[in-house]
Design a protein around this nucleic acid. Structure first.
Lengths: 110, 110
DNA sequence: ATAATACTTAAGTAATTACTTAACTATTAT
DNA sequence: ATAATAGTTAAGTAATTACTTAAGTATTAT
């Protein structure tokens, strides 16, 4: 599935920026407006908008505009995709170590 | 800790490239030479070297050269750092949802 | 109606990324 | 000694990124 790889590209890339992680972090504490997201960040609003767009394209964040304020919220499904990829590899790696441990145990018996 | 943020930048960025994820994936199955890592990738060796460097700087991979072959292995500590960051946010988000659920349950009793 | 708020679009720029090819350096095999 | 193998370094390039400022557009408050 080529699409899956591209999705991971986008999610990991989205998380690779400190400003975007601050935004995600804020959103785990509840929905927020663009202005709210911008407040702790030392950059212009347009810059925040661009980060928001990266987050939306990655699927990590959804937003809707009501009146003149856009409300953003996290979409945990995307977060889980990334977490799962890592967890799968870690599991594989740990299983490998377990097998290695068994082998060593076998050896030491002889 | 500013350093922690920079470390996350590097790890997530390292994972944001499909070629590098293939390399990491391969390494979870055991150590490999640079040539081994390059085999499944449709790019030049120098390109692989550059990806390897990104992985090493991120702390995800360590390598040592013996004779003329460099052997690479994953460093799961860095993987865990990234996984943990995501897990922490997900937990926060889930806790928030639980509280919301309780509130709604309270409401429906009245 | 006017002004303030909350965002949005456009355009430009410096830095970074992901490659490439060509040339080179050790190490091991013959 | 010569050649083959495994990796490395250097230099160049096209595309992408992370901003910026300036100039909008709706919405809401006065």
């Amino acid at each position: 599935m080529q699409t899956q790889a591209a999705a991971l590209d986008r999610v990991f890339h989205a998380l690779a920026d400190p400003a975007r992680r601050v935004m995600v972090d804020r959103l785990t504490r509840g929905p927020a407006s663009v202005g709210d997201l911008a407040k702790p960040l030392a950059m212009s609003l347009p810059a925040v908008m661009q980060h928001l767009q990266v987050l939306e394209i990655s699927g990590l964040v959804k937003s809707e505009k009501i009146g003149r304020v856009r409300t953003c919220r996290i979409e945990p499904k995307a977060l889980r995709t990334a977490e799962q990829w890592i967890a799968d590899r870690r599991t594989f790696w740990e299983t490998r170590l377990d097998k290695l441990g068994e082998l060593l145990a076998e050896d030491s018996k002889e």
